[in-house]
Computed example of a mutant assay.
Amino acid sequence: MSMLLKRPPARIAIGLVVPVLILFWWQAQSQAGGARALAFVPLGSVATAFAELAGSGQLLDDALATLSRAVTGLLLGGIAGVTLGVVMATSRLVDRLVGPLYHAIRQVPLLGWLPLIGLWLGNGDGAKLLIVSLAAFYPTVLNSYEGITHVEKRYLDVGRIYGFTSVQRFRLILLPAALPLILTGVTQALAFAWIATIGTEILLGSGSGLGAAMGLAQAQQRMDVILVAILVTALLGFTLNDLFARLRGHLLRWQGASA
């Protein structure tokens, strides 16, 4: 909430125009009668469902389960991805050994791994976490690799002139120069991990989470509950992206100073 208060009022008002128009349109469709009344639940029913789920604590439990799964998968996949990308970029041998395998398996859609992972790990948290980690792994490997390999040669020449060791060259030259692309990979990984979390919860079904709540609500034909879960998913995803965008801006604040 504090982040929203820091935004200019005009910017907030402009950003609310389209959502408000959609709400008016949705409410009009819900009152049109016939098949539309079944497809478009009145906003009052959605508000009632939200109050019901929030009051029982189920909504909070599902939201925390999804957040925990997404953040854990992002950390596991992101750390592994950045590490592998950096090692591939700095070691020609590792790049030749691992690079072809990485580029081959990343062509397989994440949903294509579900049958195999389901046989290995079932449909519990382990399978969901593996899919989310893979979603975060792919973009961080690629962007970390590109970031290191595209460091300008003149920067490396300066390191040689000053007699930097390999560790100093990495810490003082390669990492700062590659950081913008590495963080771009983490930004992509965050989005992919969030989508993968919701997707696996819907498809695998078991356990708690916003995706699992959507799947259960679909089986029960509770459109109001589905909409509540979708809205909470959107708000949480937006908040996560906004927080990371602010962190990225803080870490790269030197770019503005050097421009």
Rank of each mutant, 00 (worst) to 15 (best):
A51L: 15
A51F: 15
E52H: 10
L53T: 02
L53D: 03
L53F: 06
A54K: 12
A54M: 10
G55M: 13
G57H: 07
L59R: 03
L59Y: 04
L60N: 01
A63D: 08
L64W: 14
A65C: 01
S68N: 07
S68T: 14
R69A: 15
A70H: 07
L75D: 05
L76G: 09
L76S: 08
G77T: 04
G77E: 02
G78I: 03
G78P: 06
A80G: 04
A80N: 04
A80V: 04
V82C: 11
T83L: 12
L84E: 06
M88E: 02
R92Q: 12
L93Y: 13
L93S: 14
V94Y: 01
V94E: 05
V94W: 03
R96Y: 10
R96V: 12
V98T: 12
G99A: 05
G99N: 02
G99H: 01
P100M: 08
P100D: 05
L101P: 01
L101D: 09
Y102I: 15
A104H: 11
R106W: 11
V108L: 11
V108C: 02
L111C: 02
W113C: 11
W113I: 10
P115M: 06
P115V: 07
L116C: 01
I117T: 09
I117H: 08
I117Q: 05
G118Y: 10
G118A: 13
L119W: 07
W120A: 14
G122P: 04
N123T: 14
N123V: 13
N123L: 13
G124Q: 06
D125Q: 15
G126Q: 13
A127W: 07
K128G: 00
L129P: 02
L130I: 12
L130H: 02
L130V: 14
I131Q: 00
V132D: 00
V132C: 01
V132G: 08
L134M: 12
A135M: 07
A135E: 01
A135H: 08
Y138K: 04
T140I: 08
V141S: 10
V141K: 05
Y145S: 03
Y145P: 04
E146W: 14
E146D: 15
G147N: 01
I148S: 03
H150W: 12
H150Y: 15
V151L: 11
V151T: 00
E152R: 14
L156A: 06
L156N: 00
V158K: 01
V158S: 04
G159K: 06
G159S: 03
I161D: 07
Y162G: 05
Y162W: 04
Y162F: 10
Y162T: 04
T165M: 12
S166Y: 13
